[in-house]
Each structure stands twice: as structure tokens, then as C-alpha cells.
């Protein structure tokens, strides 16, 4: 049976892993390669490394770190942050990344999804969507760490991204990210039903029950989490053991 995936996310700034609360108040928690290796040994199904400073400060990509990660990690990993062009994506592929995730660049230049997917395949392209609820009750797509609200709406944008060649959608609710209050499961289930590609849930896990809920009621194919792993509240193995007890298929 296909397993639900547990994906630790490592937000990287200058080679160090950081995680902020609602993208503010960054705290350093460790070396990216070492943390990634530790998570892989602990049973992580995939890893995501996001160069979180890239978009905000216009930094380039972090190919040399990606190369070092590829040398030691024997599970799939995704990298993102500041990818604006096909060349940026090519460099990360050549450095050893299995997938790239694009967020702001896809919103402002949707053609980049098709450009990358047609060259390297849809399985290489994860479109990340950050969205927050507006006064009108709709989910508005945001960029630049949630600080810019766009005129795109979550569901239509996710569909468009799939049609353009995205292989997976990574959706983060900016209302929930970093709060440890759980995921908006109804929104995830609606997204899963509307898409033909996997949905990865991100942002908001406070405990294993939250993750279990988004993988069942929320129908998500995978859950991405940072805080609950980085700060040692749970190991990846503890999370997966608990999910298995709840009869959710996981790789253990």
C-alpha cells in the first residue's frame, strides 16, 4: 500500500536550518546537511530544503549546499527558494536535487512551471502555494513569505499549476503556519478532490494528531513539518509509529 509521507522541512539560511513563527523571529537550529542526514536515518520519507532568504533578499540559489546534501542523503529531497528561471532549476538538478519547489516565481511568471516540467518532467516540479483567508472568506494566494497578497485564489491557481505541469502541490495556510494549532483539513480535502496530483500539507502541526487528521480527513498524501521535529518535541519515528497505531499507512 502506498504510504503517506512524512517530510521534515528545513528552512535554510546561509547553510543553517532556521524556523520562524509565521515567518518572523527566525531561530537557528542546526547544520542543514547534518540535520537532513539525521532525519533520513530517523525514517523521514523525503526532505525539503528551502532557502528562505532567497526570495526576500534576492539571494541566488544554494547549489553548493544542495550538492553536499545529495552526497549523503539516500532518500528523495526537494529544494526551493529563489528559483526564478529554468537555469536556476537546471543548476539545482545538476547539483543533485530530486525536485524543486517554486512559489513566488510561479505566481508572477506561470510559464516557468511548464518550462521546467517539459524539460525535466512533472515529477521534478512542486508548486508551493501560500494562502491566507481574506475578509471575503476566500483563500488568497500570497507571496514573499506571506507579506504580499495577490489576486489569485487558491483552488483556481492550484488547478492552473497542475494543468501547466506541476507534479505536486504543497499548500501552506498562512493563517496556521507556525501556530501549532493544526491544519485547515476541510480546505485540504477540497483541494485534494479538485486535483489529479498529490497534495502536501504544510504549516500548523502542533502534534501527531494534527498530522493524522490532515492525512485522513484532509486526504493529504504527505505532511510537511518543521517545528515539531526541530525542537525535539517528537522524532520522525515517534510520529510515524503513532500514525501506524492510528492505522495510517506509513513506512516504518
Amino acid at each position: 500500500m502506498l504510504a503517506k509521507r512524512i517530510i521534515p522541512c528545513l528552512d535554510v539560511k546561509e547553510g543553517k536550518v532556521v524556523k520562524g513563527i509565521n515567518f518572523l523571529g527566525l531561530q537557528e537550529v542546526g547544520d542543514a546537511v547534518e540535520l537532513g542526514r539525521r532525519y533520513a536515518l530517523d525514517g523521514a520519507d523525503e526532505l525539503v530544503f528551502l532557502d528562505i532568504t532567497a526570495t526576500r533578499e534576492g539571494r541566488g540559489t544554494f547549489a553548493s549546499l544542495v550538492g553536499r546534501i545529495a552526497d549523503v542523503i539516500n532518500i528523495p529531497f526537494t529544494v526551493g527558494g529563489g528559483i526564478r528561471t529554468l537555469d536556476d532549476a537546471s543548476l539545482l538538478l545538476d547539483s543533485g536535487a530530486d525536485k524543486i519547489t517554486i512559489n513566488s516565481a510561479a505566481v508572477y511568471n506561470p510559464d516557468i512551471i511548464g518550462d521546467i516540467a517539459s524539460k525535466y518532467g512533472s515529477q521534478f516540479v512542486v508548486v508551493a502555494i501560500d494562502a491566507a483567508t481574506g475578509d471575503d472568506g476566500l483563500w488568497h494566494v500570497t507571496t514573499h513569505g506571506g507579506s504580499v497578497r495577490t489576486d489569485k485564489e487558491l483552488f483556481s491557481w492550484a488547478r492552473e499549476a497542475e494543468e501547466r505541469g506541476a507534479g505536486e502541490i504543497l499548500f501552506t495556510s498562512m493563517d496556521h503556519d507556525g501556530t501549532r494549532n493544526g491544519y485547515p483539513c476541510g480546505v485540504y480535502a477540497a483541494l485534494w478532490d479538485r486535483l489529479g496530483i498529490p497534495v502536501i500539507a504544510s504549516g500548523g502541526a502542533g502534534g501527531v494528531e494534527d498530522i493524522a487528521e490532515v492525512l485522513t480527513a484532509g486526504r493529504a498524501d504527505a505532511a510537511l513539518a518543521a517545528s515539531i521535529f526541530h525542537y525535539g518535541n517528537y522524532t520522525v519515528r515517534e510520529v510515524k509509529t503513532r500514525l501506524k497505531e492510528l492505522e495510517i499507512p506509513v513506512r516504518l
Binding site: 502506498l2 507534479g167 489529479g196
Partner: peptide
């Protein structure tokens, strides 16, 4: 074949 519960591609860990 795409089904209501199984998406294509088959992607992830399986036994």
C-alpha cells in the same frame, strides 16, 4: 488507470 482514490503517477513509498 486514474481512479477516484488513486492518483497517477504512482509516487512515493510502497512495499
Amino acid at each position: 488507470p486514474a481512479t477516484s482514490s488513486d492518483k497517477v503517477p504512482h509516487m512515493g513509498w510502497n512495499t
